[in-house]
Simulated scan of single mutants.
Amino acid sequence: MPTPRTLLALPVSLAFLCLSTAASQAGPAPDTNALVRLLVTQGKAPAAALLAHASTGVATAPTGTDHPRAGTDDARAGTDDARAGSDYALGTTEYTQAGTGISRADHFRAGSITKTFIATVILQLAAEHRLSLSDTVERHLPGLVHGAGNDGRALTLRSLLTHTSGLYDFTAVTGGTVPVTPTQAVRMAVTHPPADRGRFSYSNTNYVLLGLVIRQVTGDSYATEAERRIIAPLRLTGTSFPGSRTTLPSPHGRAYAADGSDVTDLDPRVAGAAGELVTTLADLDRFYSALLGGQLLPPRRLREMLDTRTAHGSYGMGLFPVKLPCGTTVWGHNGRISGSYVRTAATVDGRHVLTFRVNTGEIADPGLEPALLAAEFCPRTS
């Protein structure tokens, strides 16, 4: 079974998911501010930023309905420290940045963090009995997945959500640099034999297919459904699905490739439902806090999202766990797209969450990410 570290071999230019395990550390965890600075000096990023929030309020009670409404009318929209829910403002918020040309309010590309939004919409549709996770891909997208040993009749929506379908990753063909339609992406993938079904094998093709399923079931695009079900209710005012728009909304900084070239402008169709999202630090903190706090899914569906048994411990549904050296497990996702690397992690109740980003696709020292998570989530020792 591929380990999270194995996934680091995905194409550098658009490896939307790059899971890393926390390295063991002796002694007290270093300070997060110092580690953010190291993302620039040691990680070789032009600039880096982190926004973390720890709630001390009483969490909003999870909904048990089949169509939960995210957010409440007393949310403080438009502020970095607000959450759609009365408890988000009750806590401490920390912002740190290093390097130049990056700011707290910047919009940036979030890569594979898009997958958490897509998985949430699919699970909401399941809660509404509009689809079942046991449905075959063929049922919703007849005739699309076939050839070279691929068979949509043998694949379920659950296998797409958990990356256990075996489908080939279309970005291995495009290098993550060629804009394609969802159908083109799938057709590229199914010209290659699948990996073993039932084993965890990360593939962006899975979430492109889930985006198509959302349209087939609802009649609307995944972007429209995510806007209606997640972005608008949570008042994520800096979050959008840009479609084919190559520019970032204002304000934004610049994004750089590993060779230093400016890659701020990018056609998001290189990623589609696997990595199209544009967002902000505050919006990602708010989203993951609301999701894990039970505001977007009924308890049963949230438990399914966090269940990693299908993927043998590597992945849930649009989320993955990392166990830190102190024993704490954090949940979240990361994303890498040309000019941007982003990571969000949170405690399982959503009460403590952080998002950090760099304005390039690579961090030269891979040990900095697990060290930063440990510094934020592990208690200090004297």
Rank of each mutant, 00 (worst) to 15 (best):
G149Y: 08
G149H: 13
G149Q: 10
N150A: 05
N150H: 03
N150V: 03
N150P: 02
N150C: 05
D151N: 14
D151G: 11
D151P: 06
D151W: 10
G152F: 08
G152Y: 04
G152V: 13
G152R: 01
R153K: 15
R153W: 09
R153Y: 09
R153F: 06
R153V: 02
A154P: 05
A154F: 02
A154C: 12
L155Q: 01
L155W: 05
L155G: 00
L155N: 03
L155E: 00
T156E: 08
T156G: 10
T156V: 02
T156C: 02
L157T: 06
L157D: 00
L157E: 04
L157H: 03
L157C: 12
L157P: 03
R158I: 03
R158N: 14
R158S: 15
R158W: 05
R158P: 10
R158L: 15
S159R: 14
S159F: 02
S159D: 15
S159N: 15
L160Y: 05
L160T: 04
L160K: 00
L160V: 10
L160D: 03
L160E: 01
L161V: 07
L161M: 12
L161I: 12
H163K: 01
H163M: 12
H163C: 01
H163L: 08
H163R: 06
H163F: 13
T164E: 04
T164F: 03
T164W: 07
T164Y: 05
S165G: 11
S165D: 13
S165F: 02
S165C: 08
S165W: 04
S165K: 03
G166F: 07
G166R: 05
G166D: 06
L167A: 02
L167E: 00
L167W: 00
L167V: 07
L167H: 01
L167I: 11
Y168R: 08
Y168K: 09
Y168V: 00
Y168W: 13
Y168S: 07
Y168P: 07
D169Y: 04
D169T: 06
D169G: 07
D169H: 05
F170C: 08
F170M: 04
T171L: 13
T171M: 14
T171Q: 12
A172F: 12
A172G: 10
A172I: 13
A172V: 12
V173Q: 12
V173D: 15
V173W: 07
V173S: 14
T174H: 05
T174V: 10
T174Y: 10
T174G: 12
T174L: 00
T174C: 09
G175R: 00
G176M: 09
G176T: 03
G176E: 01
T177Q: 13
V178H: 09
P179A: 08
P179V: 10
P179K: 11
P179S: 11
P179M: 07
P179L: 06
P179T: 13
V180C: 03
V180D: 11
V180A: 13
V180M: 13
T181Q: 10
T181H: 13
T181G: 08
T181R: 02
T181Y: 11
P182K: 08
P182H: 11
P182I: 09
P182Y: 06
P182W: 06
P182E: 14
T183R: 15
T183S: 09
T183L: 12
